[in-house]
Design a protein around this nucleic acid. Sequence first.
DNA 1: TATTATTCCTATCGATTTAATAGGAATTAC
DNA 2: GTAATTCCTATTAAATCGATAGGAATAATA
Lengths: 138, 138
Amino acid sequence: MLSKKTKYGLKALTFIARQEDDVPVQVGEIAKGEQIPQKFLESILLTLRKAGVLGSKKGKYGGYYLRHTPAEINMADVMRVLEGPIAMVPCVSLNFYEKCDDCVDEQECSVHKLMIQVRDSNLNVFKNTTLADLSFSE
Amino acid sequence: MLSKKTKYGLKALTFIARQEDDVPVQVGEIAKGEQIPQKFLESILLTLRKAGVLGSKKGKYGGYYLRHTPAEINMADVMRVLEGPIAMVPCVSLNFYEKCDDCVDEQECSVHKLMIQVRDSNLNVFKNTTLADLSFSE
DNA sequence: TATTATTCCTATCGATTTAATAGGAATTAC
DNA sequence: GTAATTCCTATTAAATCGATAGGAATAATA
């Protein structure tokens, strides 16, 4: 299951990407527009900012803005920030690899074999989908 | 993350598929061979039996066996039994569709767009991978 | 028929994760 | 100096996960 955190995060990014103006978008505005609990959204946007996806302006009339153009923001990066590793098991993760305790021969492990394929297939989707693809009708 | 339930279930299926003989395989044997808590494995194999993937023989010298040949068992079916719906959100699930509460226009929803692609890509992998692919070296 | 070994079933438990809330500090525009 | 906003930390309630416990039902075999 996709976490609410990721769902909200994606919606918020889309909301910001769809803004015409160049002024920062406020959390309250996004929360209202996308039906997201404001305090929860605050923490999510904070995470995205710390990861370098969003920038922020503090104080009155502050808010969040994209650090790059929507077409430059790919879902592999975003998903890693919001949802964690793309691989379903650590033993096939490119960025967070960990050996299984139990597994004797990784190459012979059926789970490993299957999850390698799932990882590749998902990575392909995420890498080739940008925030622009999600934000604008084609 | 892949649940332990699914991981153990896949390993157990592979273990059974690799058996030469035609005699039922006992839970204890699989648990020992694959380092899986026996009681936990019991409940998993029960689930697989109720779903029609495995058959069982009760009583002394009983155990579990595949209801079909490994080449006939595809991962889409197995994953749905063990891990639940393949889609990451109900609004893109083919077998368990549910409308989002919040979402006004499904076609315009960024999450929807992305998750459709993920579903298709995963489904493609799962449908085209059989237990035989996972169980035997090529 | 008694014994033994196995699947089958239900219930429970502890730990972890998730989703959300609370309260206020720090910062900035005006 | 005031109002509005992001930023930070802590807490909580509910759900899920992984595992365990105990025993009923069933079947082989001596």
